[in-house]
Design a binder for these strands. Structure first.
Lengths: 121, 121
DNA sequence: TGCTGATATCCATGCCTGTCAATATTGATG
DNA sequence: CATCAATATTGACAGGCATGGATATCAGCA
């Protein structure tokens, strides 16, 4: 099936609406876990804020004091969960963020403030 | 405009604005890591969506097929990173979400779509 | 073809984490 | 005080993960 879990991404239900199913939770948790590392969070930040919305691996590597395989590993993690995409041009590989994926996670956490106080009015 | 997101604007800059400092990244990554587990994500969802915006440990435990210490451990993780608070009433402990903390993370991921295409016209 | 630079993969290692059984703590109640 | 129910803590174990060195792949170039 192509239409796996795409309905969710469109209008991502706020966390408080209804309990997350286990399946949804697994998929979303994978993305959050990928963001749950300072290096990866900074990588996403660097890529998202880079000129043209993309950055090559060398740009990213220069921003850290980590070995190149380590950066490559983190990029793979972010790519595997759908937060980054990559494109090769000549010798360089350029990464860019997937805005829909970020928006999905953002919408999920955007819990209406009223919910904490009252629900049914 | 009504009483919409005002604190959000000061809570944190969108990811794309400028590269995250290492310190900020560490703090934010801790929160994302806490959400990076399916059980914990569902716990937050259950608490946020529960009647009155709070849920006792027994409510949460019943929603999983995990041992009680495991749930207690996850609750502690979420509390330690500031995503949940707890209050003891009689024999029961009630947990509720911290909306400001969720809003902070949500705002961080709310990257403007235009940014991926062009930065500053 | 061979060489060089850029990036990815493989492998090993030490640390971190999710899980649960056992136990401790806390509060209510008899 | 004794006991029970709810929750937290401890200790242990298996699996996961971040890191880096060595190495492979890939693209351009002479």
């Amino acid at each position: 099936m192509l239409m796996d879990a795409l309905k969710v991404s469109e209008c991502g239900p706020p966390l408080a609406r209804r309990p997350l199913g286990e399946g949804q939770a697994v998929g979303l948790a994978r993305a959050f876990k990928a963001l749950g590392d300072p290096v990866r969070l900074r990588i996403v930040s660097i890529v998202a804020g880079h000129q043209g919305g993309e950055a090559c691996v060398c740009d990213i590597t220069d921003a850290f004091e980590l070995a190149q395989p380590t950066i490559s590993h983190h990029l793979k993690v972010l790519k595997d969960v759908g937060l980054l995409t990559s494109e090769r041009r000549a010798s360089w590989v350029y990464y860019r963020v997937v805005p829909e994926r970020l928006a999905e996670l953002s919408a999920l956490l955007a819990v209406p403030a009223e919910n904490s106080a009252e629900v049914a009015g």
